[in-house]
């Protein structure tokens, strides 16, 4: 019926909505967006379009209502039938450019095929002040991914894989989790933590059992990040001053980790990974929807780390991937 695609507006260089971005995809997206009217006030939304860039239907606000989206898709499909193949498809020249740009895009992806890709799910745990928060916001969860290269994945195990062996996971890897993944993303974006905000970053791996190629591991640890407002408002990082917003703004996450994993020595990869992170979070900003309910905590937030699936939809880069500084 139609080809579903999901993407982010941000790019390593210029964003898709940046008018000085001359890439094929940016020009195509801007062409589609230019035709959108009504409830669009940003590029965020759902668009049904022809490969040639004709907008068939689109919405910004209705994306959260399944029936309205269904109606939108039907409208788009009906319009599609009224447009000739010459008008709805790219020319051969355009298509060649699109294929070439897609090949470049694929080459840029640094998905750790032979390493460790974790799904990171976060959600508020039940807390006393939840009654002040809307029912919809109380149930929200968010999803991110954490990536580790092969050598980094191996650092999640003790050097000697014998029963009873224990070893701390390298601090920079635990810091990666604390700074970029143990953040309050439950209801929307927030900033990552700078390295100086990391007060504690410990994770110990212990071999519980070894059977042939398989190593059973226990993980236990704690991280703590904490930041205090330095007096300068940074867009998206701290709240704008206002009624009910604390004058001295601060934020942080105190996290306790506990879980287990199984590593296959022959395949040199994890075959299961299940770590629960129980945190106390405090602070908030205008984008992660803590400010609208003055829901600054301290309050409990849960995070679960599991192996990510191997389908394309579970290979999107981590939100703060650029901060990994992988070469």
């Amino acid at each position: 019926m139609l080809v579903p695609a999901a993407d982010t507006i941000e790019r390593p260089g210029k964003a898709l909505d940046d008018e000085t971005n001359t890439s094929f995809e940016s020009r195509l997206v801007r062409k589609i967006k230019t035709q959108a009217t009504g409830d669009f006030y940003s590029y965020q939304g759902i668009y049904v379009a022809t490969p040639s860039g004709l907008l068939l239907a689109g919405t910004h606000h209705d994306g959260r209502y399944p029936r309205k989206v269904e109606k939108l898709l039907r409208e788009g499909l009906e319009k599609w039938e009224t447009i000739s193949p010459n008008d709805r498809l790219m020319t051969n020249d355009m298509f060649s450019k699109a294929v070439a740009e897609l090949a470049k895009e694929r080459a840029r992806i640094q998905y750790p095929d032979d390493g460790l890709a974790l799904s990171v799910i976060c959600r508020d745990l039940p807390w006393a002040d939840a009654k002040n928060v809307s029912k919809v916001h109380r149930k929200m969860y968010n999803q991110d991914y954490a990536w580790f290269r092969k050598s980094e994945a191996r650092a999640f195990l003790p050097e000697q894989l014998t029963k009873g062996a224990r070893q701390k996971v390298k601090r920079d890897l635990v810091e990666r989790l604390a700074r970029f993944h143990f953040v309050d993303l439950v209801r929307g974006h927030t900033s990552s933590y700078p390295q100086e905000a990391v007060e504690h970053a410990d994770l110990t791996a212990e071999v519980i059992d070894v059977k042939n190629n398989l190593v059973s591991l226990r993980y236990r640890g704690r991280t703590r990040t904490s930041e205090v407002h330095n007096g300068v408002h940074i867009e998206g990082k701290w709240n704008r001053p206002g009624p009910g917003i604390p004058e001295l703004q601060k934020r942080g996450v105190d996290a306790k980790l506990e879980g287990h994993a199984v590593y296959d020595q022959k395949a040199e990869k994890f075959v299961s990974f299940n770590v629960l992170v129980v945190t106390k979070r405090w602070g908030g900003n205008v984008y992660n929807a803590r400010a609208q309910f003055l829901d600054f905590g301290p309050a409990p937030m849960g995070i679960v780390l599991n192996l990510a699936g191997d389908n394309a939809a579970e290979q999107v880069p981590p939100l703060f991937f650029r901060s990994y500084e992988w070469k």
């Binding site: 139609l2 695609a5 993407d7 982010t8 939304g45 759902i46 668009y47």
Partner: peptide, 8 residues
């Protein structure tokens, strides 16, 4: 046709 779901 393509359906593009675009977000920040």
């Amino acid at each position: 046709p393509v359906m593009i779901y675009l977000m920040n």
